[in-house]
Design a protein around this nucleic acid. Structure first.
Length: 157
DNA sequence: GCCAACGTTGGC
DNA sequence: GCCAACGTTGGC
């Protein structure tokens, strides 16, 4: 089992939207970056877990935990001309964009903020972590087990 | 709202 | 294949 971090803007799709879904599951659609696509398509597996990260908001940070419940499969929004994630160059015969379904596990008892993780990183506790690299824009990234445990250990405050 | 960092596009 | 222009991301 592997660990991941998945970003979303809370005003577009936040953890509160996931909680409100039937079965508290959701297809994580709209990823249009090849590096993230490769992880969705080739690496993510049912049973993996992910941090839900709120980006582009007042207090960016990790707000909850999710489970990956499907392997990657083609993102149908890429084929729908009416959809905001439509990609006219995508081809159902040779899908370009993929997604996984995710399920809510729980909120963290508090938000573990980016600022806090950055200060932790100064202690080198997290090692090389994509989230903390300058200018990082990946919306899905791997998290090592060590990083996962370290971040969860921050939760009690 | 600003803007640096980054990925993608397309002319050549 | 290079690279300038462009659009987007996302912290601040």
């Amino acid at each position: 089992m592997a660990y991941w971090l998945m970003k979303s803007e809370p005003e577009v799709f936040g953890i509160q939207h996931l909680v409100a879904r039937p079965q508290q599951t959701e297809p994580w659609d709209g990823v249009r970056n090849y590096q993230a696509r490769n992880m969705l398509r080739d690496q993510m597996q049912p049973g993996d877990q992910a941090f839900f990260y709120h980006s582009n908001c007042k207090t960016p940070g990790i707000v909850g935990l999710m489970e990956i419940i499907t392997a990657g499969y083609p993102d149908p929004t890429a084929f729908d001309p009416q959809h905001r994630y439509f990609d006219p160059k995508s081809d159902p015969e040779q899908p370009r964009w993929f997604l996984v379904d995710v399920r809510y596990i729980r909120h963290l008892t508090r938000t573990i903020t980016l600022a806090e993780l950055k200060s932790e990183s100064h202690a080198a506790a997290l090692g090389d972590f994509a989230l903390l690299r300058q200018g990082n824009r990946l919306s899905i990234m791997p998290v090592t087990e060590e990083q996962w445990q370290h971040i969860l250990a921050l939760e009690p405050g």
